[in-house]
Structures are given as structure tokens and as C-alpha cells.
Simulated scan of single mutants.
Amino acid sequence: MSARVVTVTLNPAIDQTVMLDALQLGAVNRAISARIDAGGKGVNVASCLADWGVETTATGLLGRANASVFETLFDAKHIDDRFLRLSGETRTNIKIVERDGTTTDVNLPGLKAKAGDLDAVSRTLGDLCAADRLVVLSGSLPAGLPEDSYVELLKIVAGKQARAVMDTSGAPLAAALKAPKSALPYAIKPNRHELETWAGRALNTPAELLAAAQQLRSLGIALVVISQGEHGALFVSAEGALQAQAPAIATSSTVGAGDAMVAGLTVALQGNADLETTARLATGFAAAKLGLPGPNLPDRRRVEALAAATRIKLHG
């Protein structure tokens, strides 16, 4: 069994997914199906890691009033639950998915956190961190926390000689990338749009994406992964740069594929895999998640088959 991974989710969500033939604005829409899942980026990562057999601890902030949805998931997948409970309800994200895969998100307001809540998570994280342990910091920040909240957590990870994998966007990402060099995340996985927001410019060509990734590497980040949806993902490290493209898969939904990619990336980092192996495994995780409801992976053979079938193109 590999070493335990810690995931941190400061702004989790209950995902309510509603399937429709086609969304008609201003009209009554009849759903084909609906489901409710514990969600939030770090929770999704923890769930996929648990499916792979990785011992996982999940921490962050949860509303006490509807925590049972998360507790059911953690119990079922033997995820160590170290979430801090706050008064109130965790937010709900409504995903309206049409048959052609078009997804409309309606994210409801959630908990308002306080500085003391972040301090409590920080103390928990400090207790959980150990040398060489991987810590996944994922998702947005709840109302009430400053934009640089992740910097405090990154300093704790670095102080314990652990490695952080980060997947956030906007102001929290920009703030994290201004952290002291010693506290920068080991790996990050923005998508192209998130990277464009950080860079302040369009990144329309492979060369432009690679230049932005190399700019991040120059800050001191060991591994930069840029997900590009149907166009695959760019992986850049000291070993070089390569583009990974999963085999074509018919699917009605891409929900959760990015979080699955982070889980696969984390598994590869646990094993100190080379860049090509990392790209294949991360891409295999993401492809295997496509169309699968909830924060779940299929069986290991399916993931491994997709990883093996991933096409790799070297840059330079």
C-alpha cells in the first residue's frame, strides 16, 4: 500500500446532477434522471484515489447540517474524515447536463468561513503532514477567507517537507504563485482558460501554452500540467515537455475529469514516475472518468488500458 495522501477542500459542495434531453430556457423542463453526490474538487480527488486503493485523508470545511452526504461517501470508501464542521449547510452545485453533453452549472452560495476556521484546518494539516507526503489543495475558497489563504497551507506543507499538488484558479491561484519559492506547490494543474487568466493573455497555440508553462516552471514549480479538454493535456517538467491525448471516447459528460486527472497525477508522483508514465496515468484517470456518474473511477483494468492507449507527442 502506498503512503497516505491528504486532500484539502476548503469549499466543498453537494453536486446535484440533473439529466435533460435539452434545456429550454423559460420553460418547464422534465428531467430524465437526477442524482446527488458529495463533491468539491478535493473530495472528488480523494474519492478517485480511494477507488485506486490509495489510503487517503480528507480535510477542509463542511457544513454540519448536511454533512451526512459526505460522511456516507467517506465511510463507503474508507476515507479518513478530518473535516472541520461549521454551523450551517455546505453549498449545493446544480449541474444540468443535456444529452449532447452540454453542461450548465448553477452554484448556490455556501458557508461563510472565518479566519479561525482556516487556522483550525491549518493545525489539522500540520498534524497530517509528513516528509515526502503528498497534499492535494483543490478548489475555490469560501466566502470570508482571503485570496491568499492557500499560501498559509502551502507554508505548512513545505515546513513539513511534504509536496503540494494544487488545482485552483483565479485570485487564489495568482496568490499561491506569489508564495515564497520554498512554499510553492510542487505541481499544478490549471486548464487553459485558468492559465490564460493568470497570464493575462490568450494562449491559442501549442508554443504559447508551452511558453506559459515554462514561465511557471521558472518560478520553481517542478511539474506543470495544462489540461485542454478534448485536445489533451500538456505536461512540462525538468525532463522536458510532452502532449498527451486520450483515445476518443463517446460521452455525454466531462464532469469530474479534471479532478480525476489530479488523482492520477498524484498516484504517479507517489511512485516517482517519469514524465511519460505520469502523463499516461493522469490522462488514463481523466478518460476513465468520462461519462461515469459521481466521483468514481471504473475498475483498474479500464484505467490502465486507457493509459496505455494514450498518444504521446514530444515537444522539441
Rank of each mutant, 00 (worst) to 15 (best):
A241S: 14
P293R: 03
K189G: 09
T56W: 05
A263H: 01
A130W: 09
K313A: 14
I96N: 01
T9F: 05
C48P: 00
L73K: 01
D167K: 02
I221D: 02
G101E: 12
I226G: 01
A307F: 13
T277S: 09
P298A: 11
G284E: 13
V97M: 08
A3D: 11
N204R: 09
S47P: 01
E230G: 11
G271Y: 08
L216C: 09
D105F: 02
V28G: 02
L281G: 01
A158L: 11
I14Y: 00
A187N: 12
L203C: 07
S2H: 04
L25V: 15
T92M: 06
A212E: 05
L216H: 02
V157I: 15
K189W: 12
M261G: 04
L61E: 13
T17H: 03
R302S: 11
D148A: 15
G26Q: 05
A38V: 14
L137R: 08
K178S: 12
K189E: 11
E152W: 04
S218M: 10
P185D: 02
Q215T: 15
A67Y: 07
G110M: 07
G101S: 11
H315R: 08
T90E: 01
E304L: 14
L125W: 08
K114H: 13
P298F: 07
A131C: 07
S237D: 09
T90H: 03
P142D: 10
R301E: 12
R85G: 11
P109D: 07
L84F: 12
V28I: 15
I79E: 03
H78G: 02
H193R: 09
A3P: 04
L23Y: 01
A248H: 08
L23T: 00
G60A: 08
A222C: 07
L177Y: 08
G88W: 08
M19R: 05
V106F: 09
E71A: 14
A164H: 03
G116W: 06
G264Y: 00
G220P: 02
N272E: 10
F70W: 04
S149F: 11
R302G: 05
P247K: 06
V255K: 00
A115V: 14
R280I: 15
R163T: 12
E304Y: 01
L141H: 02
K114C: 11
P172T: 15
S237I: 15
K178Q: 13
A202N: 10
P190L: 14
N93E: 05
T90P: 00
Q161F: 12
K112N: 07
T197L: 10
F83Y: 14
V135G: 03
N296V: 15
